[in-house]
């Protein structure tokens, strides 16, 4: 790919990268920084990109590294909202009957491959992650997108391991409900 083509490809990817960086960092200025660093690194490293993967996959990989680097450098102050959200009561009481069964049985989500091939599904997924409270969303993105282990997440968010597991569980339950309601129970997902 020549320099000009790479330039315009990267420019086109910028909004997507920003969106994901915001989901992870929950801060517009930090997201801008991370994406700028990423695009710069992509331009500098273009010679090393042999086209072995999609440009997008390659650049998203750089973005992940840049964000993890920020964590390692301790560049961002720890947010207290994560601690508060972990400690707060959220029992999902409305989801379960007193005997521990669900009030509404979970839907059959059908063929995973078919869902993952739909671009619109990922818009709904992003919207659902965005709807998580900030601290919870950051922890969830660290675990499931950056694929960090819980030790690293606890350390970064300065929360106890117990709170970390609780918060990730709550995030998964909320995300499950949100996807079911906004995708699988609708025409689009059905």
């Amino acid at each position: 790919m020549d320099a000009e083509a790479l330039h315009s490809t990267l420019e086109a990817l910028r909004p997507t990268l920003l969106k994901i960086a915001r989901l992870q960092l929950r801060n517009d200025a930090w997201a801008e920084d991370a994406v700028s660093e990423t695009l710069l690194a992509a331009l500098e490293g273009a010679a090393g990109f042999a086209g072995q993967s999609q440009v997008k996959t390659w650049v998203v990989g750089i973005l992940k590294h840049k964000i993890i680097d920020q964590f390692r450098r301790g560049a961002r102050e720890v947010s207290v909202e994560a601690q508060m959200q972990a400690a707060g009561a959220e029992s999902f009481d409305e989801l379960y009957r007193p005997d521990g069964h669900r009030v509404h049985p979970p839907l059959d989500w059908g063929d995973p491959e078919a869902t993952l091939s739909r671009v619109q599904f990922f818009d709904v997924l992003q919207a659902c992650v965005e709807r998580l409270p900030a601290g919870m969303g950051r922890a969830f993105m660290m675990r499931e997108w950056l694929e960090l282990d819980t030790d690293q997440i606890c350390k970064e968010l300065a929360i106890t391991p117990t709170n970390c597991f609780v918060m990730l569980h709550r995030a998964r339950m909320r995300l499950r409900e949100c996807l079911e309601m906004n995708w699988f129970a609708t025409e689009r997902g059905g």
Partner: peptide, 22 residues
């Protein structure tokens, strides 16, 4: 069966999250 369904959904959400942005 209902929890087996949730088990598959958890796996699915993990796969989907790893493909975010790809």
């Amino acid at each position: 069966d209902m929890c087996a369904r949730v088990e598959r959904q958890m796996d699915f959400m993990r796969r989907a999250m790893r493909r975010l942005g790809d």
